[in-house]
């Protein structure tokens, strides 16, 4: 546990030791706000945060891989991985420590969007449960994308390559569940296959949480997604750490 804690602490501090954290937070908060108000936050005259949450998958497709890309690619490129993995730290402890630190950082970014719910509460009488489940869904969404990004960060020493691969993989997870994609796929694939794709996409599970319904299958989906990609990251890291 101490090894996990040490890695977690170092990683989280590492974000704030460089301008990375501040640049990320400013860009994220700007676009989160911009996309919310661009989509008629005031015009719909409803005290809810649908406009804010529904844009997060698109924003996260780019923002989360930018957080994840340095996690392992930088360690491998600078050689510091040789220090980390010759300390009494196992690969899963190191991977999970870094992942949780990055997830907490994304959690901080989500917490900093607090003015949006405050505005909603000031203007009307929103359903608090809907806002809370929306934030839970957003946090899980960030975790899912982060796990994908962590895997691709371990796959390549080059941060740009790992960023591009992560964006593509996260984009597929989002766009596979879009109504237009599903309509198109239903013309060329049998209905059960389309249903499988819809269930595997992040969109369906995220939107289910946005409706305020916290179902086991949606939570399980995100955890399986996270555990699967993290496990794959540990395996690939063990294979490639010295290359």
């Amino acid at each position: 546990m101490h090894s996990f804690k040490a890695v977690f602490k170092r990683e989280l501090k590492g974000y704030f030791a460089t301008p990375i954290a501040y640049v990320f937070l400013v860009i994220f908060l700007f676009f989160a706000g911009y996309l919310t108000f661009r989509d008629g936050f005031y015009e719909i005259r409803q005290a809810d945060m649908r406009a804010f949450f529904s844009n997060l998958p698109l924003l996260f497709v780019f923002m989360v891989p930018s957080t994840a890309m340095r996690l392992w690619a930088e360690e491998r490129k600078s050689g510091s991985i040789e220090i980390l993995l010759t300390l009494p730290v196992t690969i899963p402890q190191a991977v999970i420590g870094k992942f949780i630190a990055a997830w907490c950082f994304l959690g901080i970014a989500l917490v900093l969007t607090f003015p949006v719910p405050l505005v909603v509460c000031y203007l009307g009488d929103p359903d608090e449960g809907l806002i809370i489940s929306g934030y839970i869904g957003s946090f899980l969404l960030a975790g899912g994308f982060l796990a994908v990004g962590t895997f691709f960060s371990a796959l390549s020493k080059n941060q740009v390559i790992s960023f591009i691969l992560s964006v593509v993989a996260c984009g597929i997870l989002v766009y596979a569940g879009m109504p237009t994609t599903l309509d198109y796929l239903s013309n060329i694939l049998p209905a059960p296959a389309v249903s499988v794709i819809e269930n595997m996409s992040i969109q369906m599970h995220f939107h289910s949480l946005l409706k305020g319904v916290i179902e086991f299958r949606d939570i399980a989906y995100f955890f399986i997604l996270i555990i699967g990609w993290i496990a794959a990251c540990s395996i690939i890291l063990d294979e490639r750490k010295a290359s």
Binding site: A6, K9, A17, T18, S80, I81, I83, P88
Partner: peptide, 21 residues
Amino acid sequence: APAYGEMTVAGFLNFICDARR
């Protein structure tokens, strides 16, 4: 001698102590 470039020497040695209990 690779190390974490963004850390101070103090921060780095503290991290090593933490990882080594």
